[in-house]
Write a protein that binds this DNA or RNA. Structure first.
Lengths: 228, 228
DNA sequence: GTCTATATTTCGATAGAC
DNA sequence: GTCTATCGAAATATAGAC
């Protein structure tokens, strides 16, 4: 079934010049527009017409390049899923020191999120509505490094934590709790941005200042949170 | 425009017995069903038909009681918005000790969220898609205690934090960062539940154990996170 | 108040000319 | 590859009988 008109993943095979006034590659423009609209409105709330408008193309073209809304949504989700977690896992599984790992995770996440503030809200929302898609997160994770991750996380990282706990006479903590705490402190403020702006009566500028300050304070706050 | 058929907020004025086999109040059953469906599927993804089915009534009745999907969605959002943040603000603005405040917030949130795991995902999602609705959060907050909150938070709570910081020679921290950290650590794991289950290969039971352990460890983790 | 039947709208998807 | 025109399938909403 499904006479595939075109390959979604691969770009056009032999495209030369042609396209009258299409400054950028059309497929890419559509994908970018889709990314923007889906992230802002969510998959169910997004309209193909809006995506077409934002891409500056006729909405029939969306179906020409990506067969259906469903497939377009998958493409966007895949792209989004690879941006937040996999880098964190990669850093935590590396052979850096614990302090360096934490610092890098914080800085990387806060940079990424400042550039794409809707990302966490979108991801969390999609995963809540369609838990099936969580599988694609695993695939994205696997892309980091096949089967060396689990031992690196539950072995090396766990050991680093234990060592710090002993050295500083802190309270013991499980790796899972450690990771969840770290990720929570980075991501949640962005997912809850509209809520915080309301709660504290902030404008966007004040939220930005809040994040800037946070970038400096979070690593030490987090690292020192483990003592009796 | 808009011949209002019925008052959404107030229940039926003089309803006696009548309804043949309607065990519970119909309007309430609809609202409960709407709550369930909207929280699971999101506002845009929810279907009126599904809500009617779950409430065990004809879908025409949804429009009889609540004029439109939009209004029903607002009612659900209002209810949801009052469950997470206002209690936290109330606790933080009370005259308890700092330690007691933290302990109560953690326990209250984790209890509430264990009972309604979809709540954070729904709220964050809606607020990201419709930032206008954030206003209703403020109204919900105001319900806690009119205009005594801001001084209580930025005065009393700030002082408590400073005192602890001095007494234990910790690093200084702003009230806003303190609150965001606390709320992040409580709420995020639930918003990210499908993600965590995937990342760690958990089933629901293991997530529950994770939360149970967290309930015990979080207060001290958090309180001890402020030292040089 | 509750149902059946139907109207109305919106939106995804396709056919076919250029 | 891109457009115009249109189809067809939901999904929301209403009319009217009971």
């Amino acid at each position: 079934m499904a006479v595939k008109k075109r390959n979604t993943t691969g770009a056009a095979a032999g495209r030369k010049s042609a396209a009258p006034a299409a400054d950028a590659d059309t497929e890419q423009r559509i994908l970018d527009a889709a990314n923007s609209v889906f992230l802002r409105r969510g998959t169910a709330g997004a309209r193909m017409q809006d995506i077409a408008a934002e891409a500056g193309v006729n909405h029939a073209l969306l179906h020409y390049y990506f067969r259906s809304k469903e497939r377009l949504a998958e493409a966007v989700f895949r792209r989004a899923a690879t941006r937040l977690l996999p880098p964190v896992v990669a850093i935590l599984a590396s052979d850096l020191s614990l302090e360096e790992k934490v610092a890098r995770v914080v800085h990387h996440e806060l940079d990424e999120l400042r550039a794409a503030p809707h990302l966490p809200g979108y991801l969390l929302s999609e995963l809540n509505h369609h838990p099936e898609r969580a599988g694609q997160l695993v695939q994205a994770l696997a892309g980091v490094d096949p089967e060396r991750i689990r031992p690196a996380i539950f072995g090396t990282l766990a050991k680093q934590i234990d060592e710090r706990v002993k050295a500083k006479k802190m309270r013991a903590i499980a790796v899972e709790q450690f990771i969840v705490n770290l990720v929570s402190l980075c991501i949640f403020p962005f997912a809850a941005r509209p809520m915080l702006n309301t709660m504290f009566g902030w404008k966007e500028e004040e939220f930005a200042r809040f994040v800037e300050r946070r970038r400096g304070e979070l690593p030490s706050f987090f690292l020192d949170a483990l003592r009796p």
